[in-house]
Design a protein around this nucleic acid. Structure first.
Lengths: 244, 244, 244, 244
DNA sequence: TATGAATGAGCCTTCATTCAT
DNA sequence: CATGAATGAAGGCTCATTCAT
C-alpha cells in the first residue's frame, strides 16, 4: 500500500475522444441488441434512434448506415430474434416416446430456457404492445411465430387425446391454455416487473410458475379424473347468463 | 351459488348521446373516454391530443382546460377506469355457499362480463404496455388492482384447499393460473386481434376459452384426481435437461 | 425644430416580444411571397423553411400549418404566380385592328409590365433552374404557360404573314425569337444581375432592350426589306458546314 | 469570309476510354467531368458528392483528396470549363473580310458548334442558375466570358454600323439581341428540355433556330430597310399605355 | 494513395402546449 | 369558457467531411 501506482488513473470523464473504430460486421448486431433492450423498455415510439446509437457506442449517422429507417431497424430486431425453433421442436416431437404429459411439460420448460428467459421474450411483449401501429409486423409475427407455434402445441395435445391420455378437449382452445401462461410471464417480466416492486401474491417466479402450471394443466387435461365437472359447468353458465 | 349479487349494475356508456345539451360537467369524462380508446388502440406516444379532442367533439385547447398535460390526461384515464369491484366481489365471496369450483368459474365469468368484455379491459392492456414509461401508474395499478385482485383469488383458492376440494397447491402460484388467461384474452383482444386476422388455431373466442380454461383449472386443482404427477414431473425435468 | 418629439423612439432592437398575431387569411400569401423571393434568390434546395417563415414574420411551425411540406409550398408559389393572362391577351388580340408590328411591340411591352417587371418573373427563373428536380412542376408550367403563351404569339405572327406584313417565316421558329429576349431579361434580372455588378456592355436596361428588340424583330420579319439574305445565308451555312 | 480559321480543334472528350490504365493525373478531370454533368442536371445543392465520385469511378474519399470541399469542386468545374475562345475569335474577326452580316451568322454558328452543342454550354446554365449562391463565380464568369464576349460582338456590330451595312443602332443593346437566343437555347437544352417533352410550338431545334434568328437579326439590323418604324413605335407605346 | 466506415451539424417535420380572441 | 392559430423544442434522416485502415 506504500507505493501508489502513478499510472494515469482513468477518470470517469473519459479523456480520450471516442475512438473511431471500423467494425462493419459487428455493427448491425450491436445496434439490434441495443435497439431490442430500448424498444422493450420504452416502446417503439418513445425510443430515440440517437439513444440506440449511443447505447451501441456509435453515432446517430452510423445507425442509418446499416438500417434505412427506424421502422426497418424495428423489423430487423423482430426478425433477428425470431428464430424458427419450430423445426427443431417439431423434430423432437416426432422422436418423443414418453407420455404426452411429459411432452407438454418439456415443451414449456424448453420455451422458458430458449425464449422466455432470454432477451427474445422482449420481442413478444414488443409485438403485442405495438401491434396496432405495425400491422405488417403483426402479420409477420402471426405467420412466423404464432401459427407454427400453435400448430406444434396442437399436435402435442392431439397426441394426448388420441392416445387416451387426455380427455376429449377441444385442441384449439387447449392450445391457448398452454400459451397463456407464457404470455403472462413475458408481460410480467417486461411490463410490470421491472418498474414496480411486486411483492407477496403478485410476485412471480417464472420457473416455479411454469412447473406449477404444467402440473395444473396436465391434471386438468388428464383422462383419469374422477369428478364430473360438466353439471357444475352448466349451472354456472346459467348463472352467468342470468347476470349478463 | 344460490345468492348472486343482483345489484343494479351502472352502465358505463350513457345510451342517449346528448349532442345538443353539452354540459361542461360531462367534458372531462367525454375526453377520458375518447382518450381511453385511443390510448388502448395506439399507445400513449402515438396518440395525438388533437385526435382525442376531435373524438370528444371539442377543440384542442379545451382539452388543456381540463387536463394540464397529456401525461395528466393519461393518468386520469387510468385512475378513472381502474375500478376496484373487489369490495363487491369480496362480499359475494363471503356470502357464497356453493362449491369452490363454482366460485372459481363464477369469478372468471364475472370478470369477463364486467371487465374483460368492456372498455375497462383496455386499461389493463394500457398499463401493461406503458408500465415502464409510467412507473407511478404501474405502482398505483398494483396497489389498486393487482394486490386486491390477487388477494381475493387467493382467498378463494385457499377456501378450496381448506375445504378439501382442491389439492394442497401453493396458492400464490395458483393465483397466476387464474389471472394468466385473463391477461391473455385482454392482450389478444386489444393487441393482435384488431390488426391482424387471426384464423384457425390462433383465433380466440374469449367466452369459450374462459369456460374451457375454468374446466381445465378446476380439474387441475381438484383433489379427486387419481394420477400422481410428481414422478412424471421429475422425469420430464430430466428429459428437458437431457435435451437442452 | 426646437421642440423635439419626446415620443419613445423605437430602437432597432425591438423590445416587445414578437406579438402573437392571428391572421389566418393573410398568412398563406405572406408565406408565399417570402418563399418566392427566397426560392428565386437561392434556389429550392438552398432555401430553408425556417428562413421563409422568418421572412414572413412567423415561426417555423406556422408554415406547416398552411403548407404540408416544403415541396407543396414550392408548388403553391408557382401556381399562385402563374396567372393565366392569356385569355385577356387573346381577347385583346381578337379586337386589335392596328398593324401586326404594333401588336408584337404591344405584346412585349405588356409582358414586361405585367410579368417581367414583377415578382412573377422570378417564377420562370425558378422553374427553369429547378425543372429537372420537379418534372411535375415543369410539365405543369409547360401546359399552363409555355404552350398557351407560344400559341398566342404564333397567332400574332401568323396574322402578320397572312396580311402580307411579315415575310413568309416559319412561325414556330419565330415564336422563339419573341420569347428568347424575355427569358434573357428574366435570367439576367434574377440570376447574374443581383449578384455581380454588370457594367458597360454587359449592363442591361430591360425596357430599353425590349424596345430595341421589338424594332429589330419587326424589321427582321418585315416583308418590305430590300436585301436578299438567302444567298448570304446559304454561303455562311456552307462555311459553317465546312468547319463542322 | 474567305479565310476561315482551320486551326486543329482539340476535341474535348478522349475517344479511347482508358479503363485499365488509370493514371492519377486523369483523376481530377474525370471527377470534374462527372461533376459538371451532375451539377448541370441537378444543380449544386441537389448533387451529392458520392454520386460524383461514383460516376467518376472512384470512392467518396478520393474526391476529397483532389478537392478540399464540394464548393471547391464546383468552382474548379466552372473555372476549368470556362473557355474563352475570344482570342481565337478576335483574331478571326480581324482577318475577316466578308460582310458583317456573314460575320454575325458565322459567329452564331461557331458558338453553336464549339460551345452550344457541347458540354461547355452546361456551364452557362450552371452559372446562371447558381449565380446568387456563388457571387465569386458569377464575377469570374462576367470577367472571363461575358465582358470579352460582349466586347467581341459589340465590335462586330460596330463594324456593321461603321461600314453602313447596319442601321445606327445602339451597339450595347444590340449585343443582347445576339446573346439572348444563345442563352435561350442553352436553358431550353439543359432546363426544360430534358425533363418535360416539349412538342409542337414549344419544341426547339437549336440549329434551325440559330439560322432563323440570324436571318431575323440581320434583316432587323440591315440599313437597307425601307419602312420607318419610329412612328409605329411611338404609336404602339401609346397603345400599350392606353391598354395597360 | 485509396478506401469506405464513421461522424455530426443541419434540415424538414411533428405535435404538445400556449394564448389572443 | 371555448377556440384554433401560433409556437418551438425535439426527433428522424441526410450528406459533406474525416480518418483509421
Amino acid at each position: 500500500m506504500t507505493a501508489l501506482p502513478t499510472l494515469p488513473v482513468p477518470t470517469d470523464a473519459d479523456p480520450q475522444p471516442p475512438k473511431r473504430e471500423r467494425r462493419k460486421d459487428a455493427r448491425p448486431s450491436e445496434l439490434m441488441e441495443a435497439a431490442l433492450s430500448l424498444f422493450v423498455e420504452k416502446g417503439f415510439a418513445a425510443t430515440r434512434v440517437e439513444e440506440v446509437a449511443q447505447r451501441a457506442g456509435v453515432s446517430k449517422g452510423t445507425l442509418f448506415l446499416y438500417f434505412p429507417s427506424k421502422v426497418d431497424l424495428f423489423k430487423a430486431v423482430v426478425r433477428e430474434n425470431i428464430v424458427g425453433r419450430f423445426d427443431e421442436w417439431n423434430e423432437a416431437f416426432e422422436r418423443f416416446e414418453g407420455s404426452t404429459a411429459d411432452m407438454v411439460r418439456y415443451c414449456m420448460l424448453q420455451w422458458w430456457e430458449r425464449i422466455g428467459a432470454t432477451q427474445a421474450s422482449g420481442i413478444t411483449k414488443l409485438v403485442i404492445s405495438e401491434a396496432s401501429l405495425f400491422p405488417e409486423i403483426a402479420n409477420f409475427y402471426r405467420d412466423e411465430v404464432i401459427e407454427p407455434g400453435s400448430a406444434l402445441i396442437r399436435r402435442i395435445l392431439q397426441r394426448g387425446v388420441s392416445r387416451g391420455e387426455f380427455r376429449a378437449i377441444d385442441p384449439d382452445l387447449a392450445v391457448h391454455s398452454v400459451v397463456a401462461p407464457m404470455i403472462f410471464i413475458i408481460l410480467w417480466k417486461h411490463g410490470m416487473g421491472p418498474c414496480c416492486q411486486l411483492s407477496g401474491v403478485a410476485a412471480l417466479d417464472p420457473l416455479a410458475f411454469i412447473h406449477h402450471q404444467a402440473d395444473v394443466l396436465i391434471h386438468g387435461l388428464s383422462a383419469q379424473t374422477a369428478c364430473a365437472p360438466s353439471a357444475t359447468s352448466a349451472d354456472s353458465t346459467t348463472l352467468a347468463d342470468s347476470h349478463g
